[in-house]
Amino acid sequence: MPISVKTFGTLPDGREAKLYILEGPKGLTLEATDYGCRVHRLWVADKLGTPGDVVLGHRTLPEYFGANFQGAAVGRYANRIGNALFHLEGKAYPLAKNDGENSLHGGPGGFHQVLWQAKAQDGEEPQITFSAESPEGEEGFPGRLSVTVAYTLTKDGALRMEYSGTADKPTPFNPTNHSFFNLSGNPQAKIFDTTLQIHAGQVTEVTDDLIPTGTLLPVQGGPLDFTSPKPLGQDMFADDHLIQVCGGFDHNFCVDGEGFRKLAEAFEPESGRVMEVWSDMPGVQLYTFNKAPEPLTGKDGKAMEPHTAFCLETQFYPDSPNQPGFPFAFLTPGKAFATKTEYRFSIR
């Protein structure tokens, strides 16, 4: 199907950011911008056939500037690296700090701040491919990293995200997408009634600043037990220390199994929308938009409110470069890394 392009705005240095609109099968429509390789809108039909935008975001380009990860591809390393430091081949690499003493989502100048190169391809499964170069030493990371991210609307109603990277020196690489989903299509609606199932029997134990200790904790019978579907609101404010610290969920789940498999499924009963998450990554971070920093304004022109969205970020576990027991490998020269995630939509 045809892909349309329009201007989204201008960066402070005068470069122009674009919006790319892909119309796919089954009423699925994606609007993505090259600024941050970002999902700006995602229209999905509800049980009545009415399309609705199921991701949070902003009306204008400048609202995405700064420490705003909404809809963006994040990296070089998604999630946190403790003390903004890791060691590789006997050398210490201090990183830019943007989460207290830690590095979060690649640092303040990570992928979410980059104007990516874009190439669109129409057809039965329209696709937009973004590419970028991260130079040696950016945010403290070693090596020059070449990255591509492809978003495809598949004929069976999924948004497929494919990431690949190559580097000229060993370096950490852990890309993901940070879309904030609200399957009701109403950005002001709380997500308490959205049911969620995650195929994970364990989570990473973390300190209060969300850095793993290296221990994996069982979820069975506790507030983090999503092995059977349950409403997000059921345990979002449970009498659990970390849930109370976070004001909701902000946890890495260690997904059962290996290879490309189903990680999670969310269902919003009023709209009937179902979203399945499939990936080959070992973990998924559940975040329930526990705090809406002022002054964030949504695409509806209203102030964003906490607990109006959830994120399911497929990833390596947080702080894996410092945790030898976690499933992770550094990206090395001559060996590309590739990973795939699909958000599959249907109605019930």
Score class of each variant (00 low, 15 high):
Phe65Ile: 02
Val114Thr: 12
Ser131Pro: 02
Asn83Pro: 00
Ala120Ile: 01
Thr50Pro: 02
Glu133Trp: 05
His105Leu: 15
Val44Gln: 02
Val39Thr: 09
His87Phe: 10
Gln127Asn: 05
His105Lys: 14
Pro135Gly: 13
Leu145Pro: 00
Asp99Asn: 15
Glu124Leu: 12
Phe86His: 03
Arg80Phe: 13
Lys91Phe: 06
Phe130Ile: 08
Glu133Tyr: 07
Asp99Gln: 14
Trp43Met: 11
Gly66Asn: 11
Asp99Arg: 12
Trp43Glu: 10
Glu101Asp: 14
Leu42Asp: 07
Phe111Asn: 06
Gln70Met: 09
His87Thr: 10
Ile128Lys: 07
Gln127Trp: 00
Phe141Trp: 08
Glu63Lys: 03
Ala120Arg: 05
Ala96His: 09
Gln70Cys: 09
His40Ser: 08
Val54Met: 11
Gly75Tyr: 02
Phe86Thr: 00
Gly49Tyr: 03
Leu104Glu: 03
Thr129Lys: 13
Ala67Lys: 11
Asp53Tyr: 10
Val147Gln: 11
Ala118Thr: 06
Phe65Val: 06
Gly90Glu: 11
Trp116Arg: 04
Asn98Pro: 09
Gly123Pro: 08
His112Ala: 14
Glu136Gly: 00
Gln70Asp: 00
Asn102Asp: 15
Leu85Ser: 14
His58Lys: 12
Thr50His: 12
Gly57Tyr: 04
Thr129Arg: 12
Pro142Leu: 04
His112Asp: 06
Leu95Arg: 02
Ala73Cys: 15
Gly137Leu: 11
Val114His: 03
Pro126Ser: 13
Asp46Pro: 01
Ile81Met: 09
